[in-house]
């Protein structure tokens, strides 16, 4: 069994929900990423989603677009992201790491080579935002062959037939995108999230995380009341952007946000 499943089972026994921060690897410069990952774990993160920079992040809002641009300016490529995970793993053998990004860098490396390298680096899950299950067959085989969980998105527009199709191939957890839009959008409606999660759970026993629109302790607590995991991305990446060049301040502000979310979720 993988680290992701282990982590969710442990949380379930404790009656807690997972806190999953997202940062883009290499933003604003490569040296900060691994120390920041450790700091986020210390502040209460259960799983880390690490963004792989891509030149054309079609599903991301301006905050994460600019994060990818900063990371690419410093030359952070997929192989560098894998090296960061390997470095992180030298000190942390338990916290699951999920790579989140777009398909083309993975295609360029080759599915089998990528799955092998990811597994060896200590990556636990891969979420390719522009890869629906209809196109995922070959990558799924490669990932499964190396014990890496394929993570899939579900959206407000996803109907029962598609939920069934996605749940049939996903493992680790599912990521429900709480609203129509791109990352960093506002307007979280917890009641509609709760309704959709009930619909999703009729199809699967996998844990369901919720992302998009979670920016502070209040929204984290509200979502944790209905979901198995809370994903926070743009609110953290904004802190990086506002404090670029000041690594200590970035780490302090991000860990502050996470610690407050953790406390609110566990209260």
């Amino acid at each position: 069994m993988g680290r992701i499943t282990d982590r969710f089972e442990k949380l379930k026994r404790e009656g807690r929900q997972a806190l999953i921060p997202y940062v883009t690897a290499g933003d604003p410069e490569p040296a900060i990423t691994v120390p920041l990952m450790h700091a986020m774990v210390a502040a209460g993160a259960d799983i880390i989603e690490l963004g792989v920079p891509f030149s054309d992040p079609m599903a991301d809002g301006p905050v994460i677009q600019r994060a990818a641009e900063r990371a690419l300016e410093h030359g952070t490529r997929l192989r560098d992201v894998l090296a960061m995970v390997a470095t992180f793993r030298q000190q942390d053998r338990d916290t699951p790491v999920v790579l989140m990004g777009y398909l083309n860098p993975v295609e360029a490396m080759g599915y089998e080579a990528f799955a092998k390298a990811a597994s060896e680096a200590g990556v636990d899950g891969v979420l390719s935002v522009d890869l629906p299950p209809e196109e995922a067959h070959d990558l799924l085989e490669a990932l499964r062959g190396h014990g890496v969980d394929p993570i899939f998105l579900l959206a407000p527009t996803t109907d029962d037939a598609r939920i069934e199709k996605i749940c049939a191939v996903a493992s680790g957890y599912l990521y429900y995108v709480s609203l129509k839009g791109v990352t960093g959008a506002g307007g979280l409606d917890v009641q509609s999230v709760a309704d959709k999660l009930a619909q999703i759970r009729r199809h699967t026993a996998l844990p369901v995380g919720v992302g998009f629109g979670i920016k502070d302790a209040d929204s984290a607590r509200a979502v944790a009341a209905v979901a198995d995991a809370v994903v926070v991305g743009s609110a953290l990446v904004k802190k990086i952007e506002q404090n670029a060049g000041q690594s200590d301040k970035i780490t302090r502000e991000i860990t502050d946000v996470l610690a407050r979310m953790r406390a609110a979720m566990d209260a």
């Binding site: 079609m58 599903a59 398909l103 935002v129 522009d130 890869l131 629906p132 209809e134 196109e135 899939f152 998105l153 579900l154 959206a155 407000p156 527009t157 996803t158 109907d159 598609r162 996605i166 995108v177 129509k180 839009g181």
Partner: peptide, 12 residues
């Protein structure tokens, strides 16, 4: 070809 988009667009 194919359809390589985020899940939100699949039904539309």
């Amino acid at each position: 070809g194919g359809r390589f988009v985020a899940e939100t667009l699949m039904v539309p």
